[in-house]
Amino acid sequence: MADIKKIATREAYGEALAELGAKYDNFVVLDADLAAATKTGTFKKKFPERHFDCGIQEGNMMLVAAGIATTGLLVPFASTFAMFAAGRAYEQIRNGIGYPHLNVKIGATHAGISVGEDGATHQCNEDIGTMRTIPGMTIISPADAVETKAAVEAALLYNGPVYIRLGRLAVPVFNDPDNYKFELGKGIVLADGSDAAIFATGIMVNAAMKARESLLAEGIDAAVINIHTIKPIDEELIVKYAEKTGAIVTAEEHQIIGGLGSAVCEVLAENHPTPVKRIGIKDKFGKSGKVPALLEEYGLTPADIAAGVKAAIAAKNK
């Protein structure tokens, strides 16, 4: 475990595009002057004629992608930072891609507070929230490089708009590339447990596994479930673990308003009311800093998840 490989999901996204480019000739990639950061540059190196830089104009890029998709000739991947996709270009995505349900894939990197030093303007903690409100939008939030690669291919093969949430930070690759299977809309039970269940997404999945280990030492057996598809969410699995454990924790590198925590609460409130503790950013903007310090300050560590599990169990036992 000590020398486990770390790769940013944006890095895996660029590699996935480059690998898939050889396998499928039906897609092109758009970027908005961030190819070096979103890693679509990796694809561009291999397929320069299939990569179109739009310059710094995310709104136009989303509709160029939409226009390409209307032709049925090509599938466009449009990439920029999450802030400038789900934030700045929200209306373009809503009216130009979501409403006509066009086959556009949005590769949004630099999601969450783990952007680090660039600070609040570039740390998008609201994108799951905005994208989730768009009817018919699929949202994928991969946890590591292996999952990212599988998710990008699944998104390409799926006919409809997909928002793929990716991070800047190098994170542990914990999925086994030989056995990993991605199924759109299906959560993955990484560890079963009976006392509580942690539903985590993105970089928080690995943190949830660490929380589970520390809890086990204290005699608490918490299940860990990777929710890589936030929309459509795996209602069946959420209800199943609520019934089984009676104590739920959600963990996301996103605002607790509108994100995975909200989505899980919506499912449970209507189907199986259960105590829930949401681990995420508590209605705050981010700020500049080193990522580990930020994760600590904003309550996104394994210890925060473990505390959430204990609180959820206490609420269950009240």
């Binding site: 160029v64 939409a66 998709a69 032709t71 009216n95 006509p100």
Partner: peptide, 22 residues
């Protein structure tokens, strides 16, 4: 093309034209 939100249609037209070229 779905349109109505001003400024979006001309960008979509660009995408259609780009796809034809490609």
């Amino acid at each position: 093309m779905t349109s109505g939100s001003l400024g979006l249609g001309i960008s979509a037209a660009c995408g259609m034209a780009l796809a034809a070229k490609y």
